[in-house]
């Protein structure tokens, strides 16, 4: 009986706070993406000829994001039937865009106009001790920022 109440409370809390945080995060992502729009990103290694002298510098951005109780529950149920786990899709989309943004922010602080050979890595962390436990995900973005020499 009390277990059920605790469970429903956690679900409700997870849903309420999780959805709110997600919407807020997406708003912030969109805003910052607009701000950093002039800083270009490419996954190509070959950098075109530059008119001005430039130098390269490795930049990276990473984020660890955790799933809320509600999504964890939905994903757990989904595991029984198989299929698309929509709860995780939005989570990872957020994490990835956040990581790219952080990389871009670092590049901007260095005075770069573009980042080349961008690579993205995703890893599940804090999953080791208990196999069943859904932990958190880390997404990392890294690339070479091109900085004009002044």
């Amino acid at each position: 009986m009390y277990d059920l109440i605790v469970f429903l409370t956690l679900i409700a809390l997870g849903y309420g706070f999780g959805q709110h945080a997600e919407r807020k995060h997406f708003r912030s992502i969109l805003e910052r993406e607009k701000e950093l729009k002039t800083l270009l990103c490419f996954s190509e290694r070959r950098i075109p000829e530059q008119e001005v002298p430039v130098q390269g510098q490795l930049v990276s951005g990473s984020v660890v994001i955790s799933i809320d109780y509600f999504k964890q529950f939905v994903a757990g149920l989904r595991n029984l039937f198989g299929g698309r786990v929509t709860a995780y899709e939005s989570l990872l989309e957020r994490a990835r865009r956040e990581a790219i943004l952080r990389m871009k922010e670092q590049a901007r602080d260095l005075g770069a106009d573009s980042v080349w050979n961008v690579r993205l890595e995703t890893a599940a962390i804090s999953q080791g001790a208990q196999r069943q436990q859904v932990g958190s995900m880390e997404v990392m973005a890294y690339g070479t920022a091109l900085i004009r020499k002044t």
Partner: peptide, 13 residues
Amino acid sequence: GLGDNVMQGWANS
């Protein structure tokens, strides 16, 4: 053996 511990709790209830 399946799913998360939350899911197991639900199954048990």
